[in-house]
Write a protein that binds this DNA or RNA. Structure first.
Length: 452
RNA sequence: GCACCCGUAGCUCAGCUGGAUAGAGCGUCUGACUACGAAUCAGAAGGCCAGGGGUUCGAAUCCCUUCGGGUGUACCA
């Protein structure tokens, strides 16, 4: 039991004695240490209910409070009860906490499994600054959840099956520098991707070629599949280096491609169960009409009229979408991993997607405690949203390198006695730690501007 | 149009499960120490918490509303 709980227990006993019926009230840490260590507004709350004088009631409560060995109490201001903990009570409590490997933090997650879905970069493209929030916040949540006794499954839901592979395949076949790929794969893949990307803008025929390569890949073409596999492997190695630097660990890397053959049956099931239906050639989940339109993620108001805003799970051309994969992922995590909770550490612009996803999953009978742990956007120096797709963002690896270099510079100035390997190690710890701290010290939902 | 996020000191932000005098870093100003307009140290000034209304003994915090900025809103993720 914490000191606070101990105080509440004793306060409840006193309140019960004073009022002649079972009663309790909350104790909080004091806002200002000059008032004591803990405080309660019990007398003020109860005096209001009973229309009596709060200070007189507080006096009566103190008369019945048994605090021997724990604390002293006095009345202040309009009727606050302030508690000052006795040093020996602190000492005894601290000793107990130190003997517990969890330092007395209750295991609220015991017996529960939580999947934390975070980071999720696209392969074949370098991680940029925009990925840092999900990665750092997600990793921190994993550590906290583990400490709280949850069984934690950290899953990196990488984008390994997007439309970008059409361009990469075409580039791989026509532009790839094998030596450069060997030396440092990610920049070479990025170069190839960029060149094809600009080529498609100049010449629509190139875009058709890319689309064709993508279709072949999705149809299971052996050559394209082999290239795709290689591409994933070198990308993962590149990503792993950054995760090692950040000391971020995953239990699984089950990307979008993992769920491929589950998508078609999923859509069939949704149709069979009547959760989804056809509309304009697409298969969609619509509102079930149980919510007020303004609370319904499947409704949207356009020019004063409420209209349908369905979640599409199969396009008119037969292709599957983000929502389809995410539903298949929920199914897998619940059925295979026995997940009780899933925490998605994804930016706030995707809020609507998750509201739709969670509701569609519930209607499908996949229930659990699903949370969208949203965070604010990272803006460029022009205060505009950083474009995830443009590819010319500041790379995450450059941010980390810069942080360590700047830390090294400060160490050289302020602690010249640190030298060589020791100085480098401290620079690494301080630099990376500073990046993490900068992320975590800030309100999760606030946007921020990235600036060197 | 509608939904969501944000609006706190000159700047960047804490505080938001309601509590007593709203905090920090940087910047500014004053002083100390100094060969130094640097670094360091000590201190000070600086706020109608975007505006208005409501609930409450008590509101930056909860509710309503207005304004400003941003995001999302059927076949991208």
């Amino acid at each position: 039991m914490t000191i606070l709980q101990e105080l509440e227990t004793r306060l409840a006993a006193a309140l019960t004695a004073v009022l002649g019926e079972p009663a309790s009230a909350a104790v909080t840490p004091a806002a200002d240490l000059r008032f004591g260590d803990y405080q309660t507004n019990a007398a003020m709350v109860l005096a209001k209910q009973r229309k009596t004088n709060p200070r007189a009631l507080a006096q009566e409560i103190i008369g019945h409070l048994e605090l021997t060995g724990l604390a002293t109490a006095d009345i202040a201001g309009p009727g606050f009860l302030n508690f000052k903990i006795l040093p020996e009570a602190y000492a005894a409590h601290a000793t107990t906490l130190l003997r517990d490997e969890k330092l007395g933090v209750p295991a609220v997650g015991a017996g529960k499994t939580v999947v934390v879905d975070f980071s999720a970069p696209n392969v074949a493209k370098p991680m940029h600054v925009g990925h840092i929030r999900s990665t750092i916040i997600g990793d921190s949540l994993c550590r906290i959840a583990r400490f709280l006794g949850f069984k934690v499954i950290a899953d990196n839901h990488i984008g390994d099956w997007g439309t970008q592979f059409g361009m990469i395949l075409h580039g791989w076949k026509t532009l790839l520098d094998k030596q450069a790929l060997e030396a440092d794969p990610i920049p070479e893949l990025l170069r190839v991707y960029r060149e094809v990307n600009t080529a498609t803008k100049a010449d629509p025929a190139v875009l058709d070629t890319c689309k064709n390569e993508l279709v072949k890949l999705q149809a299971g073409d052996a050559e394209n599949l082999a290239i795709w596999h290689q591409c994933i492997e070198v990308s993962k190695r590149g990503l792993q280096r950054i995760y090692d630097t950040l000391d971020v660990k995953f239990d699984h890397w089950l990307g979008e491609s993992f769920y491929n053959d589950r998508l078609a049956p999923l859509v069939d099931e949704f149709l069979a169960q009547g959760i989804a239906r056809e509309s304009n050639g697409a298969i969609c989940v619509f509102s079930d009409g149980t919510k007020k339109p303004e609370d319904d993620p499947f409704k949207v108001n356009r020019d004063g009229e409420w209209t349908d805003n369905p979640a599409i799970i199969r396009k008119a051309d037969g292709g599957f979408l983000y929502a389809t994969t995410d539903l298949a992922t929920i199914q897998f995590r619940i059925d295979e991993w026995k997940a009780d909770q899933i925490w998605y550490v994804v930016g706030i612009p995707q809020q609507l997607h998750f509201r739709q996803l969670f509701e569609a999953a519930a209607r499908w009978g996949k229930t659990g405690d699903f949370r969208h742990v949203a965070f604010g956007s990272i803006l460029g120096e022009d205060r505009k949203l950083m474009k995830t797709r443009s590819g010319d963002n500041v790379q995450l690896t450059d941010v980390l390198t810069e942080a360590v270099e700047r830390a090294a510079k400060i160490i050289a100035e302020k602690s010249p006695d640190l030298q060589g390997a020791e100085a480098a190690e401290v620079a690494q710890i301080v630099g990376i730690g500073a990046v993490k701290f900068a992320e975590l010290s800030q309100n999760r939902l606030t946007d921020y501007v990235f600036a060197w």
